[in-house]
Simulated scan of single mutants.
Amino acid sequence: MSKKIFTNEEIEILSKNKYVKRVSAKGITYTDEFKRIFISEDGKGKFPRLIFEEYGFDINILGKRRIEMAAYRWRTAYDKEGVLGLQDTRKDNSGRPREKALSIEEKYERLKAQISFLKAENELLKKLDMLERGMMKKK
């Protein structure tokens, strides 16, 4: 988090941007849509500062460091988890364990979903392996 504290006027200006979820004196939460746009534009070779300016952010209010750190976080999250890494998960995950225990049926459904996911992942890996082998034979 940046050391810069937003004034009430700056908070009001930032809040009017459609790509801002929330703003407090110490931080700003961007929409998931803006993060996806940012990654897309960044992939085309645009500078982070230019992307923020094009989408209505005042660079003087945000500060260069805040922009650089947001860009770093989003690139890292995107490289690790793809588009899902850009989503704001704070509302979904408070860090506390579930209070209710899952029933046998719920556990069963969860395990079934996990198995089907792993099967699909295995199929994908098999296809990739076959493609790589085909490329090796051509060389």
Results as ranks from 00 to 15, higher is better:
residue 68 E to C: 07
residue 59 I to E: 11
residue 83 V to D: 13
residue 102 L to G: 04
residue 103 S to I: 06
residue 58 D to Y: 06
residue 67 I to G: 02
residue 78 Y to W: 04
residue 61 I to A: 03
residue 75 R to L: 02
residue 98 R to T: 15
residue 64 K to I: 13
residue 99 E to G: 08
residue 95 G to W: 15
residue 82 G to Q: 00
residue 99 E to D: 03
residue 89 T to H: 09
residue 91 K to W: 06
residue 61 I to G: 02
residue 58 D to T: 10
residue 60 N to G: 15
residue 83 V to F: 11
residue 90 R to I: 10
residue 74 W to V: 03
residue 83 V to S: 15
residue 98 R to M: 08
residue 89 T to N: 10
residue 59 I to N: 08
residue 91 K to D: 06
residue 75 R to E: 06
residue 86 L to D: 04
residue 81 E to K: 10
residue 60 N to W: 01
residue 78 Y to H: 08
residue 83 V to Q: 12
residue 84 L to W: 05
residue 65 R to G: 12
residue 93 N to G: 01
residue 67 I to K: 01
residue 97 P to G: 12
residue 97 P to R: 15
residue 60 N to F: 02
residue 77 A to E: 03
residue 66 R to E: 10
residue 64 K to C: 02
residue 79 D to G: 03
residue 102 L to C: 03
residue 71 A to I: 02
residue 57 F to A: 05
residue 75 R to P: 00
residue 68 E to H: 09
residue 102 L to V: 07
residue 63 G to D: 05
residue 79 D to T: 06
residue 69 M to L: 14
residue 100 K to N: 01
residue 73 R to E: 07
residue 82 G to V: 00
residue 63 G to A: 06
residue 72 Y to I: 09
residue 92 D to W: 06
residue 69 M to D: 14
residue 59 I to D: 11
residue 69 M to A: 12
residue 85 G to C: 02
residue 56 G to C: 12
residue 70 A to F: 04
residue 64 K to L: 04
residue 69 M to E: 14
residue 100 K to I: 11
residue 94 S to D: 05
residue 92 D to V: 15
residue 73 R to G: 03
residue 102 L to Q: 09
residue 58 D to L: 04
residue 83 V to Y: 09
residue 86 L to N: 04
residue 96 R to T: 10
residue 91 K to V: 14
residue 88 D to Y: 11
residue 74 W to M: 07
residue 71 A to R: 04
residue 73 R to V: 07
residue 65 R to C: 07
residue 83 V to P: 03
residue 59 I to V: 15
residue 97 P to I: 14
residue 68 E to Y: 09
residue 101 A to H: 10
residue 94 S to N: 04
